[in-house]
């Protein structure tokens, strides 16, 4: 069943058109990766899908409802967002950050109900954050911090989570940890994931569907096997690469070929 649907979405910033006539849809429970070179419009498209940047034309629906006509709280109760790194400058505790995910459900005059506490508890358990609920967010490592923000997204009890380069500030062990968690959410929690990736290999390894963007358009859409081919990647990124299959997972991965070696210059 289609959950998220974008129909000929076009737009950008002011007069500058960044996204050109993109149509795209995804079913619930899938894990979609958006990849492409810098300036291809990945983040801009994600901002349009997440109701931050109004497209100039086209229609985006979640569950058949136009997202720009939904009340803002109703939207936040079904769609959450995790950015690559949040600059928290005030000394909030992790619990306070996760509790903010309940905003769409809370009444201004009332405190948190039993239901809110339960949702927060579940989110903290799923992301394995219970060891540091009372710690201040700025005292945590980057990996722990990212888990707290994923917990906040889960506390919104969404059907769809957008992530903008969720692992770009993390080392490889934390990258795997976070992406395993996200994968688990999409498979067992039936939450749809749409994430922007810089790292082609992570995207290929974890996503069911990849959307390769180039110049504000979709250059390719399909399974990692279909999209991560050296012809497509070389054409879009304008650089020479080698594509092989991961012996463990069978997913394609991309190797770089430095120009100096290709020419045989220094060897």
């Amino acid at each position: 069943m289609t959950l998220l649907n974008a129909e000929s979405v076009t737009g950008g910033y002011g007069r500058e058109v960044v996204i050109k006539d993109i149509s795209f849809s995804t079913t619930s429970g899938s894990f979609v990766g958006i990849i492409g070179p810098n300036g291809a419009g990945k983040t801009t498209f994600l901002r349009m899908l997440s109701r931050v940047l109004h497209p100039a034309s086209g229609r985006i629906t979640v569950d058949g409802k136009d997202i720009y006509k939904m009340p803002v709280k109703e939207f936040a109760a079904s769609v959450a967002f995790v950015s690559s790194e949040s600059g928290v400058i005030f000394p909030f505790t992790c619990l306070e950050i996760v509790m903010m995910g309940r905003f769409p459900y809370l009444h201004p005059l009332r405190g948190e109900s039993e239901k809110d506490i339960e949702a927060v508890e579940r989110a903290i358990e799923m992301t394995d954050c219970s060891g540091f609920v009372s710690r201040q967010i700025d005292q945590l490592s980057a990996g722990e911090r990212q888990r707290v923000f994923i917990a906040r997204a889960l506390a919104q009890e969404p059907r769809l989570i957008f992530l903008d380069e969720p692992t770009s500030h993390l080392d490889i062990s934390h990258q795997v940890q976070i992406l395993d968690l996200i994968k688990d959410l999409s498979e067992r929690g039936n939450i749809t994931i749409v994430a922007v990736f810089h790292d082609l290999n992570l995207a290929s390894e974890y996503c069911d569907t990849l959307m390769l963007m180039d110049g504000g358009r979709i250059a390719a859409l399909g399974t990692p096997k279909e999209v991560i081919s050296y012809e497509l990647i070389e054409k879009v990124y304008k650089t020479v690469v080698v594509v092989r299959d991961n012996p463990v997972s069978g997913k394609p991965y991309v190797l770089l070929a430095p120009r100096i070696k290709r020419k045989g210059g220094l060897t």
């Binding site: 901002r47 109701r51 803002v72 709280k73 939207f75 949040s86 809370l106 919104q156």
Partner: peptide
Amino acid sequence: ALNSRELNAISLGEEEAAHLGVD
């Protein structure tokens, strides 16, 4: 004081607050 939850969210950044359902 009645807007303190909104202020909490906005103090993390405007887009963050928008994603949490703050107008």
